[in-house]
Amino acid sequence: MNDKVKVAIIGPGNIGTDLMIKVMRNSRNLEMGAMVGVDPNSDGLARAARLGVATTAEGIDGLLKLGVFDEIDIVFDATSAGAHARHNEILQGHGIQVIDLTPAAIGPYVIPAINLDAENASNMNMVTCGGQATIPIVAAVSRVAKVHYAEIIASIASRSAGPGTRANIDEFTGTTRSAIERIGGATRGKAIIILNPAEPPLIMRDSVFVLSDLADLRAIEDSIERMAASVQSYVPGYRLKQKVQFEVISAEHPVNVPGLGPVHGLRTSVFLEVEGAAHYLPSYAGNLDIMTSAALACGDLMARRRMDAGIARRRKEIAQ
């Protein structure tokens, strides 16, 4: 008996193709049902077809026509924030669980190391690559001290930024900033992304700067190390590049934070590196690997919940 849930991926680009390979190689509860695109000459669609996965180049309308559609219970959307709204509206009408890898943020923000167990919405938003890498660190500091301001800088290889990533730069900064505040716990957040054109391409690097109330330095460091280990459990290439750095900001020389005014306390600086698993993408593309790894962790848990609730069985019964 097959006890896995069938999924479809919309968007056969770098992220969608890497996610497909992760589903086929590593998933506990998922199996590929369909790969959906709009370009008949897409390498991702061709690869999916070679692997025996149903494909369509007619977008979501083509997915609805596929014979396997009635067996699909979860859909990953790896397209763009602009396209996701229509996709989600159609899929919700069919009772399908949606996992959003775009910055559309229709559903709640989900970062597996922080809040996956607590969320159970029909649309789950995976924030952004920079958010997946850095917001766990902000949340780790928030577990120990009140965070007034957090700023993250995500630096990725230009080669690992495809058309979808480039089209969503504005949404990246807005969505990441919002998630820094909502699930990272910062009163005020800021997000910056850098596309580095260096050759050979550089691995993903992230810098996190957190301004919080004064707190025990060892407690903050321990919290950050535990959080990093939690992320590493589903993103093996995630690691701290050096020891956590601290600086006391005195009341006599506060930092002026826009929207908050002068703030003093403890500045915590954390420097990260994310190396990709190289399932489909080069190892330097950690920005894409962390998104697909986080989405896979989310999909596996949502599939288990749907199986436990009998939702997957009910959809298959309706299809018959």
Rank of each mutant, 00 (worst) to 15 (best):
I99Q: 04
V263S: 13
R226L: 12
V36Y: 03
M307H: 05
E221C: 01
E58V: 12
E225N: 08
R315V: 14
D70F: 15
C298A: 04
S212V: 07
T79I: 06
I169G: 00
L195R: 08
D216W: 14
Y280K: 09
A49P: 00
L45S: 00
Y238G: 00
K22P: 11
Q97S: 10
D222A: 09
I156S: 13
T79A: 05
I15G: 02
N196L: 01
D100Y: 02
T134P: 03
G37H: 04
N168R: 08
R47S: 11
G185Q: 04
A85P: 02
G52T: 07
H94G: 08
I9T: 01
S142M: 06
D39Q: 03
S223M: 15
K241C: 15
I15E: 07
L211E: 04
R143F: 14
D170F: 11
A139G: 03
G59P: 02
R226V: 04
H148Y: 12
L63T: 02
A303T: 01
I193D: 08
T134R: 14
A303Q: 00
S178Y: 13
I135C: 03
I137N: 00
G237S: 03
T79F: 07
L51A: 12
K316N: 14
I311N: 11
N125T: 11
L301Q: 10
Y280L: 05
P200S: 04
D77I: 09
T175G: 02
N256M: 08
P108H: 06
A78D: 02
L19C: 00
A48P: 00
D216P: 13
A278Y: 08
S212E: 02
E317P: 08
S155K: 14
D43T: 09
P12L: 00
L214R: 14
G131T: 09
G265C: 12
Q242A: 13
A140E: 13
V231Y: 03
A34I: 01
G67Q: 04
P201H: 04
A294K: 02
D18Q: 13
T165L: 13
D206H: 07
F69N: 04
I106G: 12
D39I: 05
V7Q: 04
V210N: 05
S230A: 09
G37S: 04
E151N: 11
R182Y: 12
N26I: 15
G95F: 08
R143L: 10
V274F: 05
V7L: 01
D43C: 01
R226W: 14
S250K: 06
P12N: 04
N123D: 07
D39L: 11
A46Y: 15
Q245M: 15
R86Q: 15
A154M: 08
G162A: 09
A54Q: 07
G44D: 03
I137S: 14
H264Y: 10
A297P: 02
